[in-house]
């Protein structure tokens, strides 16, 4: 026992500061947030203790999940995430695949594709708000204008102002910004595969497609999973891009994070906290299985 304590003592002592900070500022605050979400703290008076606050357990969650407006937000979130994920994966993989072939100009294109990531979501959001202007016909601007100029008038649409699919238009700038990152991940994956394996496959008479399908793709799957998790959890937490293209009150682009903001500004802390917890659970559903899997893989 004493021996064990001595063995663990020094690392524990070294880890203690970060453990305490994480404990208080991450897990402690998650607990506090959950604690608020199971109360009826819906007004400013209750928040400052002027009026009593009672525990209502999961009533806020039931009300939220049962309301049409919040379901609309959740649907938007799912739509946004699906388009964002598929878009970045396809574009990112495509670019990585092209750059993997030893042609000239790889460094140049790598920088070009990676650059949008250096722009903040808020800055690119402002520009994309202009590009995604929903005016059509004579007063059109942005992409709609571009479509007119190149004779593709029929492609004009109202972008993010479509009630059902408007949110997916906002996935466009998100894809534009993060495809380069996914490309970098895949490119690193391609480079991590020894050249000998490809050569061996070719010597065995495998066609180029077979080399990819049977040799390269299987080895890229951990990279693909990481990319999915990283982009997926970013997508679920999307707020700044949506806010800088649209406005918090706009119905067509509501997502849970925007709802949380609006609740908070109405002094409705309980519902804001409940939305926060729901978001955390959704992200956990995506991330935790991945962490468990990685952990098991490391053990092996």
């Amino acid at each position: 026992m004493r021996h064990r304590l001595r063995r663990l003592g020094a690392p524990l002592l070294l880890l203690a500061p970060s453990l305490i900070l994480l404990g208080v500022f991450v897990y402690g605050l998650i607990a506090a947030n959950f604690n608020t979400s199971i109360t009826d703290n819906h007004t400013a008076a209750q928040a400052t203790g002027q009026e009593p606050v009672t525990t209502v357990w999961f009533q806020n969650y039931i009300d939220l999940l049962g309301s049409d407006d919040f379901q609309h937000s959740l649907t938007n979130l799912v739509l946004f995430t699906v388009v964002f994920l598929v878009g970045t994966m396809v574009m990112g993989f495509g670019w990585a695949w092209m750059l993997d072939r030893p042609d000239r100009g790889e460094g140049f294109f790598r920088s070009i594709y990676l650059f949008p990531m250096a722009v903040s979501f808020v800055a690119s959001g402002v520009v994309w708000r202009w590009l995604l202007n929903s005016n059509q016909g004579e007063s059109a601007s942005g992409l709609n204008r571009l479509f007119q100029m190149i004779g593709l008038d029929f492609l004009q649409n109202n972008w993010w102002n479509n009630i059902t699919f408007g949110i997916t238009a906002i996935a466009l700038p998100a894809i534009w910004q993060l495809s380069g990152y996914v490309m970098a991940l895949f490119l690193a994956g391609f480079r991590g595969i020894p050249e000998e394996l490809r050569e061996a496959a070719r010597v065995d008479g495998a066609s180029e497609w077979k080399v990819y399908r049977l040799v390269l793709f299987p080895q890229l799957s951990p990279i693909a999973l990481s990319a999915l998790i990283i982009i997926g959890h970013m997508s679920l937490k999307s707020f700044d891009l949506i806010m800088s293209i649209s406005k918090p009150a706009n119905y067509q682009t509501k997502v849970p994070a925007v709802d949380m903001y609006v609740f908070k500004s109405s002094f409705n802390y309980a519902d804001a906290a409940a939305v926060g917890t729901i978001l955390l659970v959704i992200v956990a559903l995506v991330v935790v299985p991945y962490l468990v899997r990685t952990h098991q893989a490391e053990k092996r």
């Binding site: 995604l132 005016n135 007063s139 109202n158 649209s246």
Partner: peptide, 10 residues
Amino acid sequence: MGYTNDDRDG
């Protein structure tokens, strides 16, 4: 509202 511009929400 029927008389207004389409791009209003932005």
